[in-house]
Each structure stands twice: as C-alpha cells, then as structure tokens.
Simulated assay, not measured.
Amino acid sequence: MGVLLVVVVVILAVAVGLVAWAVGAYNGLVQLRNRVGNGWAQIDVQLKQRADLIPNLVETVKGYAAHESGVLTQVTAARAGAVAAAANPGASLAERAAAENALSHALFNLQATAEAYPQLQANQNFMNLQNQLQGLEQKIAYARQFYNDVVMKYNTRIETVPSNIIAGMFHFTQAQYFMADEASRAVPQVRF
C-alpha cells in the first residue's frame, strides 16, 4: 500500500509539473505574440506621423522647385500608396513594407532634389520639416529593429523543442519580419 501511494504521488507530481510547464509555455508564447503586435503598432504610429508630415514638405518644396513635378508626383503617389496600405486591414506585412519602402525611396529623391535649391535649403519651414522627418526616420528604423528582434524571439520559441509542441497545439504561427525590398537595397544614384 505504501509503494502504491508513492507511485500515485510521483505520477501526480509529474502530471502537475507537465501542466505547469504547458501553462508557462503557452503564456510565454502569448506574451511574445503580443509583443510582436505591439512592435508593429509602434512602427505604425511612426509611419502615420511620417505620412502626415509629407504633404507639408511637398508644398514647401513645390514653391521653390515647381518644375520638379515628377519628383513631387512620385512622393505624393508613394504617400497615397502607403496610406492606402495602412488603411487596408487585409494588407499583409509584406504589402505594407513594400509601400513604406517605396515612400522612403521617393522621400530620398525629394531630399536629393531639394539639395539643388539653395533658397529652399535656407527656408526655415523646410529645415524644420526636414529635421522632423529625419527624427521620424530614426524612430522608424529603431521601431523596425525592435519589431524584428521580437519577431525573431517569437519565431524561435515557436520552432524550438519543447515549446513547439504547445505552439502546434494552439496554432501559433510565425510572424513576418519587416524587410526592405530589393529596390531599397540598391545603392541610390544621385545626379544633378
């Protein structure tokens, strides 16, 4: 009778230990999934601020570089694409990233064009807008790095033993990294 009691206690202890591990693994996965969502939300806030700043920047440049309409049109179209992708709840992370990368490329072209106009460079409004944009770009870069770091931790947890068992049972899926598209990786050509 004493041996049977010891066996039952050991089996209960192992069962309780397994349940505690499963609960801990599940909660850890949920926490990481929520951090991935929060990381994306932080990027989204910065991207929204950038999109809101761009019309003012374009209007300021337009006054000095009216004949550069191709660059201004490119920035306006890229901003519209980024805003549309952000407003579309069905847009994938890859689609959002592509739209934002196109906007970054267009902004680079706008800044390169603006450098050819000394009066524009001396305009205080333009300088303030450009400084705000540079600050936002730094925040976006940091937010993207943070997001990708959290995605790496989350995806690693989903793939590694033994937490992959819980991830599979509860249908945790991998998150996508925020990656630059091929056009953004190319070295930009600046010509005046």
Rank of each mutant, 00 (worst) to 15 (best):
V10R: 01
L12F: 14
V14T: 11
G17H: 05
L18P: 10
V19K: 09
A22R: 10
N27C: 04
V30K: 05
Q31K: 13
L32C: 01
R35D: 15
G37L: 13
N38R: 12
W40M: 09
Q42R: 14
Q42G: 13
I43K: 01
I43V: 10
I43E: 04
Q46R: 07
L47W: 11
L47E: 12
K48M: 09
D52M: 00
L57Y: 02
V58M: 01
E59G: 08
T60H: 02
Y64R: 05
E68V: 06
S69R: 14
Q74D: 15
V75S: 08
T76L: 03
A80M: 05
G81F: 05
A82E: 02
A86G: 13
A87W: 07
G90Y: 00
A91L: 03
A94L: 04
R96L: 01
A97D: 00
A98C: 10
A99K: 00
E100L: 05
H105Y: 11
P118N: 00
P118V: 01
N123K: 08
N123D: 15
L133G: 07
L136F: 11
A143G: 04
A143V: 05
Q145G: 14
F146M: 13
Y147W: 09
Y147N: 08
V150E: 15
N155Y: 02
I158D: 03
V161S: 10
V161A: 13
V161R: 10
V161I: 15
S163I: 06
I166V: 15
Y177H: 01
Y177V: 02
A180K: 12
E182T: 14
S184N: 07
V190M: 05
F192S: 13
